[in-house]
Design a protein around this nucleic acid. Structure first.
Length: 560
RNA sequence: UACCCCGUGGUGUAAUUGGUAGCACAGCAGGUUUUGGUCCUGUUAGUUGCUGGUUCGAGUCCAGCCGGGGUAACCA
């Protein structure tokens, strides 16, 4: 098991676990993934998931899934189920399924112990007063006038809190630490607040709910977590995490923090994602432009790509932002190997083959995936009227344009060589059709005389084409870091072109496409049949990611 | 103005724990190609934030400085 780790990524966390295993400090590594069920998982969570589940797998340990459901205000059973589904989709299974709420009785007992030890007290101050007396980053706080109540009185009041004698906000239980501590988290943090509210798991059983700091470490302790991995912003909470365990005299796991994930153009803040949904800027949590796991899955991202990405980016304590290209790279890498190819024309231009035998239809053989010999081939109908991509024709091409142009011969993929002989235009001068002749000797795309063409373009027979809706998705934002634009709200940077809907012409075999099926539309990109909106009678495809496009890149560079 | 963390090519990450810097992506150039994709080859780019110190030797250790991030919810 330890050997397996040798081929795995190495980082300061794995190094530490390896050391703890070797020194005998721990026998088996136990981690946990502790989401709060108040929203959907996003790509940032994927990093944390791959880490906690990853190290458990690599070192032959265990990883629990624990709902951190200590605040009934925003939590919901719907999220509990969604989180589990997303986790399974990513390909992880948990050893234990737990809820912080199931520890409420134990937490309560421990709290009374701290009260008895004189390490916790009931405070009658309002939330505002507590906040005001906490001091600031540079000034110490002030002791609460209720700080010196006797353990007996505190215990009585705490029981009454639990028994519902007080209204929301009337009292809290606070740890008695140090109101002048440099770390504000140690300035008598609140442990329990009163909330007469229905909890998704415990119903109306409790009206006092533990705060994060007073539940998390204790939950970890109960589960025997050895390494409690969390993001950097919890670093200042570690002393408190330790203080609670030490004060209780219970097993103390090791909290280790790492930098959260940032990727250009993607938001990884639940709050902001919620704003996008509630503001109607996207069509829901599973909108394919969302960085949520369900949004990305719907868009056509694969778990393999996501996991490869997470594995590649590593773990560090340095706050960094990854280029979106790295995500694209892993996505394309997996899609290239696994997606069957199809031909689809998204911006159709008619091609008329003038010497094609009237009314004749021929089937040509097309390879399903050149990267996968086992994927076979299919027959595609070829006829005298075809659709090609408008981009693939230029009336007055620059020298580096290889595609169709007057007088030029190109290959129609898997079909024939065709030579452009003329153009039809409408009254406004717009090209309405391209005329050409084909060479019957080049069937399949090879010329017996060995002559070459500079370009191969895709096509769809007009008489056989399927009409379909194709949604061209691109970055949701126009800037790499919408959340960090000084003086601006991130919503100001929404990309109006993040979703462009077109009507495409697809080769007939795509009629069989079903929700979730992924294809490469040759020379364009990877597309997924939409699992939500596509129907056999009205196909809908989503563009997962474009193919790399050297021609377009060169064009853009020249444009500059 | 307090405390904590961090600082390696454009981006991200590694360096056998003190032996003078690797990998991936991106970029550039070329080759192959019935996808201007894939693949292959080559290549640009870092005086390891700065300045001192310890040492035969420092990205690794020490000090100071500079820069970035985090923290003041009855949120997690």
């Amino acid at each position: 098991m330890i050997e397996a780790a040798d081929t795995s990524p190495t980082d300061f966390i794995r190094e530490r676990i390896r050391a703890d295993l070797q020194s005998g400090k721990i026998k088996q590594v136990v981690t946990r993934f502790p989401p709060e069920p108040n929203g959907y998982l996003h790509i940032g969570h994927a990093k944390a998931i791959c880490l906690s589940f990853g190290v458990a797998n690599e070192f032959g340990g265990r990883c629990n899934l624990r709902m951190d459901d200590t605040n009934p205000a925003a939590e919901d059973q719907e999220y509990v189920e969604a989180i589990q589904a997303d986790l399974r989709w990513l390909g992880f299974s948990w050893d234990g399924m737990y809820y912080a709420a199931d520890y409420f009785p134990q937490l309560y007992t421990w709290a009374t112990q701290l009260v008895e030890k004189g390490l916790a007290y009931v405070d009658d101050q309002t939330a505002e007063a507590i906040s005001a007396s906490r001091g600031t980053l540079t000034a110490p706080g002030k002791n609460s006038p209720f700080r010196d109540r006797t353990p007996e009185e505190n215990l009585r009041l705490f029981f009454e809190m639990r028994d519902g004698k007080f209204g929301d906000g009337q009292k809290v239980l606070r740890a008695k630490i140090d109101m002048a501590h440099a770390n504000i988290n140690l300035r008598d943090p609140v442990m329990y607040r009163i909330r007469h509210m229905h909890h998704q798991r415990t119903g109306a059983k409790w009206c006092i709910y533990p705060m994060y700091d007073w539940a998390h470490g204790e939950s970890d302790s109960i589960e025997g977590i050895t390494h409690s991995l969390c993001t950097l912003e919890f670093e200042h909470h570690r002393p408190l995490y330790d203080w609670f365990c030490d004060s209780l005299g219970i097993y103390k796991p090791q909290q280790i923090e790492f930098a959260r994930l940032n990727v250009e153009y993607l938001l990884t803040s639940k709050r902001k994602l919620l704003q996008l949904v509630e503001g109607g800027h996207v069509q829901g949590w599973d909108d394919p432009r969302m960085p949520t796991l369900r949004g990305m899955r719907r868009r056509g991202y694969t778990k393999e790509a996501l996991r490869a990405f997470c594995k590649h980016i590593g773990i560090a304590r340095f706050n960094s932002t990854h280029e979106h290209e790295l995500l694209d790279f892993h996505l394309r890498e997996h899609l290239n190997k696994t997606s069957q190819r199809r031909m689809a024309v998204l911006d159709p231009l008619k091609v008329v083959i003038e010497n094609w035998p009237q009314g004749e239809v021929e089937l040509v053989e097309a390879i399903n995936n050149p990267e996968d010999a086992t994927s076979g081939s299919r027959q595609v109908p070829f006829a005298g009227e075809l659709w090609i991509e408008r981009d693939d024709f230029m009336e007055n091409p620059p020298k580096d344009f290889f595609r169709m142009a007057p007088g030029r011969e190109v290959r129609l993929r898997y079909g024939y060589f065709v030579k452009c002989t003329g153009i039809d235009k409408d009254a406004d001068g717009n090209i309405t059709a391209v005329r050409c002749t084909y060479d019957p000797l080049t069937k399949g795309g090879n010329a017996p005389d060995g002559r070459k063409v500079k370009a191969t373009i895709h096509w769809v027979s007009a008489a056989h084409a399927l009409d379909a809706e194709v949604r061209l998705l691109s970055h949701l934002f126009t800037v790499k870091d919408p959340a960090e634009q000084e003086g601006h709200d991130f919503l100001e940077f929404l990309n109006p072109k993040s979703l462009v809907v077109v009507r495409g012409k697809l080769e007939p075999s795509l009629q069989d496409a079903r929700g979730g099926d992924r294809y490469q539309f040759e020379r364009i990109g990877y597309f997924t049949c939409d699992s939500k909106d596509s129907k056999p009678s009205e196909l809908v495809f989503l563009r997962t990611v474009t193919l790399k496009d050297a021609w377009q890149k060169a064009q853009k560079k020249q444009g500059k």
